[in-house]
Nucleic acid binder design. Structure first.
Length: 576
RNA sequence: GCGCUCGUAGCUCAGGAGGAUAGAGCGGCGGUUUCCUAAACCGCAGGUCGCAGGUUCGAAUCCUGCCGGGCGCACCA
């Protein structure tokens, strides 16, 4: 159950007779929200001031009128009129207690099916297979994975698609490098490492201004696309190694895809796309290239270069066509760096004009990862930081802390915990921030074992499990007993109310496509639990009823933290 | 030049389709451990929400202009 939704509905039904339009009602419902300050209650309705204007009444009179008209039973008593016309709502303790009991028995975290279940394609991660994955790929992977999990939890059908960059000019660089600078022994030893070396070698020379080399690699790319047997054979030889290396990282991160349809998959559809665009009068010839112009944007959208090669723009259009035909999605999310905003703006506009106007195409943009110096994140030596070494380092850091704090755990368990804590730290640090902000990467902040971190959530969870161990019970056993829940202590009430509000957080996260709404919720919950842990003895509670009630609150907290962290792709441990 | 984006406490950031006295973490200062994990809890200090106008009963939030940072702008993806 979503308490906020319930209250919105109740208030919506209490609009003054005849005076309020449907738009007024919608606006009023929207202005029902969690209270900004606990002293104003639990929720508040702020719509009276605006509604007073359109109905010509005085705000406080209107507020009084609605307060007496609205039926909040059994959720809450009549709202209180406050200030210029606020309506403050305080939930009934009996309602909270009952709802918590239902939550415990139900086991579905209070989630209900959405009014309209959507099919959503989430396009995320999408690395170039030729380059080693580095921290730049982290955000798309972590944010996209989390959004996919959140959408699925909200009841939507999700297709996770890794749109690999396996066909672009970076492959031309590798092909040229292979033919001119390969180290076969190194390749035998470490294929992906050798390919990465070749990529870097060639890329550095091009960046340094080697125009002839750039042209040579362009030709290698063109030959690959044209079906040149040698280049195709090399591509087929390299790809399994590249995919294997990627898969190893995804396995470590616990990230899964439903499909991995890279650029190469769409190659045979590109000519038809351009043809169709021309036929429909969308694409025109310009300076030897075939392009689509969009009003108000100077730069054209190039679907075929003057040398005849197609571009990623063409591929992106073909991808929309394929996805529309295959999954009939209501929405497609592109979890991609904010710097590509211009490209997507054009892509979406052209797709609409091309006929895909019923799909909600959305660029889920995120900011750049920066170093402490506010420059793009590099190692001390100036290299981009490889994802593998990042994961290794986080695990090593976590292991040190685990060994220090939990010497009683056996070494194998310490390592297992360190992997989970390290990964949680990396993911949480990325997700807890509004994705659009640039992300200042800070080791000490990320690996901090206190404050607003993944570790803090994991610790709170471990403490719930610790109570069960000491009490000789389990969360599932408590669920089976279904004890009555008491919320007359303010700290119990606070955590109880928090526990009811996961659906609100998920709804908001889905609407805004922001995982940090989930991290905020979980951090609040973990804080509420930490306070509860200090102030409310569980196993030594003053009565058996109180003890059982508090065990139930611990069980609910554990379930919610574990489920919620799961929405972020973060695991929990029973001891740490 | 055009466009996008950001500017909130010493630091890192929430909040942003308008609502009551602007929040958190870290750092700082001060407390808490015969008691379920102190990786914790409690308290204190700390802000002209970049600046200036405007709209509004009400602006960190919306509009305009300016200042400052980042990013993107024809054949890379």
């Amino acid at each position: 159950m979503n308490v906020l939704d319930q209250l919105k509905g109740r208030f919506g039904n209490a609009m003054p007779e005849g005076a309020a339009t449907a738009a007024d009602r919608a606006a009023f419902e929207k202005a029902v929200r969690p209270a900004g300050d606990p002293k104003f209650g639990d929720y508040q309705a702020n719509g009276c001031m605006a509604l007073a204007k359109s109905t010509g009444k005085k705000p406080r009179d209107l507020a009084a009128e609605i307060a007496s008209a609205v039926d909040l039973a059994p959720i809450a008593g009549p709202p209180e009129v406050a200030g210029p016309g606020f309506l403050n709502v305080r939930l009934n303790d009996a309602f909270i207690a009952g709802a918590l009991g239902d939550l415990l028995a139900d086991g579905r975290h209070g989630l209900v099916p959405p009014r309209q279940a959507r099919t959503v394609v989430v396009d995320f991660s999408s690395p170039n297979v030729a380059k080693p994955m580095h921290v730049g790929h982290l955000r798309s992977t972590v944010i996209g994975d989390s959004l996919a999990r959140i959408l699925a939890a909200a009841g939507h059908t999700v297709v996770r698609d890794n749109h690999l960059g396996d066909w672009g000019s970076q492959f031309g660089m590798i092909l040229w490098g292979w033919k001119n600078a390969r180290d076969e022994a190194n390749y035998t030893e470490d294929p992906v490492g050798e390919l990465a070396r070749l990529y870097r070698l060639v890329n550095d020379r091009i960046d340094a201004g080697d125009a002839a080399l750039k042209e040579a690699t362009r030709q290698e790319t063109a030959k690959l696309h044209a079906g040149d047997p040698e280049n195709r054979a090399l591509w087929n030889q390299f790809m399994p190694h590249c995919l294997g290396a990627l898969q190893a990282i995804y396995d470590r991160m616990g990230v899964k895809f439903d499909v991995q349809l890279g650029e190469s998959f769409y190659d045979n559809q590109l000519a038809a796309v351009v043809e169709d665009l021309e036929k429909k009068g969308l694409a025109v010839e310009s300076e030897g290239a075939i392009v689509v112009f969009v009003e108000g944007v100077e730069a054209p959208f190039i679907v075929r270069k003057s040398d005849g090669a197609f571009t990623y723009a063409t591929t992106d259009l073909a991808t929309i066509q394929y996805r529309a035909a295959t999954w009939k999605p209501d929405q497609v999310l592109y979890v991609v760096d904010a710097r590509q905003g211009d490209h997507f703006k054009l892509l979406f506009e052209i797709a609409r004009r091309w006929g895909y106007d019923a799909i909600n195409l959305e660029h889920v943009a995120f900011g750049t990862i920066l170093g402490n110096d506010r420059r793009p994140f590099k190692t001390r030596k100036g290299d981009v930081v490889g994802l593998e070494s990042l994961l290794d380092e986080a695990t090593a850091e976590a292991l040190k802390v685990v060994q220090e704090n939990s010497p009683d755990l056996d070494p194998e368990e310490q390592r297992r915990v360190a992997v989970i804590v390290g990964m949680g730290a990396i993911k949480y640090a990325d997700l807890c921030q509004n994705r659009i902000s640039d992300y200042v990467f800070d080791w000490s902040k990320m690996m901090a074992m206190n404050g607003n971190t993944g570790t803090y959530l994991q610790y709170a969870y471990a403490r719930t499990q610790s109570i069960f161990r000491k009490g000789g019970t389990t969360a599932e056993a408590i669920r089976a007993v279904r004890p009555a829940i008491l919320v007359d202590h303010p700290v119990e009430r606070a955590i109880g109310l928090k526990l009811l509000r996961l659906p609100e957080a998920i709804d908001l996260a889905v609407a805004e496509l922001k995982p940090n709404i989930i991290t905020d919720y979980l951090f609040d919950l973990a804080q509420a639990f930490s306070t509860f842990f200090e102030e409310c003895p569980v196993l030594r509670a003053e009565s058996p009823e109180r003890r059982d009630s508090r065990l139930a609150l611990c069980a609910l907290t554990g379930f919610t933290l574990k489920f919620g962290a799961g929405l972020l792709g973060i695991d929990m441990v029973d001891r740490m």
